[in-house]
């Protein structure tokens, strides 16, 4: 090759190198060599977790839907930002309960069905939810106005999807374990949701009728169970489950953490 082609050739090579390098960017997180877990129903254990609340719940703030007339039209009653929901039996709703430690190195099948985050009446439904690593998250806009689903994870890749049309659905998956990932709609700053992403199916969220989460079909062993609430943070408890054992746990969140 003549020397006068050297410079362009170097440029070309540099470019090709850059192009190839770009392709590599997509590499997935290292998958730990996982032993497939087969759970024997005969020995499976159960942790029944109930979350209580003590103290006085803060007054819910009223959301001024007047900020967006297309949202306002969807509501006849005043809407409140219900961060702390205390049920009649004194339990606390919207607490994410999950197995935090004790399942390392085990792998679980990913459910084929996706988790759904819906946007109805300019609010997220559900407000707190969980899904598995690799499981599809289906985000649906049921309103006839623009919402954007702006997820701000730290371990996973951030995304920000605009959904201008009613009925639109977008799907994403998370490749890393992460508790919790906040979701926000930038158009409606009051909208907020949280998702817990776990590599196993042992999680649940306390409801407005029932402050209990049943983690069943667990292999016997030692676990750390955690309960997370967006206002009051996370609490953990260590338990040991014997074969076919059923244990009850209680978490208590206090409004005044004295």
């Amino acid at each position: 090759m003549k020397t006068r082609y050297l410079v362009p050739m170097i440029l070309l090579a540099a470019f090709l190198f850059a192009a190839c390098g770009n392709g590599e960017e997509d590499r997935r997180a290292d998958r730990r060599p996982a032993e497939a877990v087969e759970i024997d129903p005969a020995t499976a254990a159960t942790a029944v977790t109930t979350v209580h609340f003590e103290g006085t719940a803060p007054d819910p703030q009223r959301i001024s839907m007047a900020a967006d007339r297309s949202c306002q039209e969807l509501h006849t009653e005043p809407v409140y930002d219900r961060v702390v929901i205390v049920n009649e039996d004194g339990t606390l709703a919207n607490v994410f309960v999950y197995v935090k430690e004790g399942l390392e190195g085990k792998s679980f099948p990913v459910p084929g069905e996706g988790a759904v985050l819906d946007q109805v009446g300019c609010m997220y439904t559900p407000r707190v939810f969980g899904l598995q690593v690799g499981q599809e998250l289906i985000m649906r806009n049921s309103d006839a106005t623009l919402h954007n689903v702006h997820a701000s994870p730290t371990a996973n890749r951030e995304f920000n999807i605009g959904q201008p049309v009613q009925g639109m659905e977008n799907t994403r998956t998370f490749n890393q374990e992460e508790v919790m990932i906040p979701f926000k709609c930038d158009v409606h700053p009051w909208m907020s949701a949280y998702a817990g992403v776990l590599p196993h199916p042992y999680f649940g969220v306390t409801g407005e009728d029932n402050g209990t989460v049943v983690l069943d079909n667990l292999p016997p062993g030692e676990y750390v169970i955690a309960a997370w609430h967006e206002e009051y943070g996370e609490q953990t408890q260590r338990i040991t489950l014997g074969e076919s054992e059923r244990q009850e746990l209680t978490f208590t969140f206090r409004s005044d953490p004295a």
Partner: peptide
């Protein structure tokens, strides 16, 4: 034609127009 679903748009643009609607971003 805002908000009109055009499936061919997804064919052409792929993930830029999921469901046949060009996303605002």
């Amino acid at each position: 034609y805002p908000a009109e679903q055009m499936p061919w748009l997804e064919t052409v643009l792929g993930r830029y127009a999921e469901g046949g609607i060009l996303a605002p971003e």
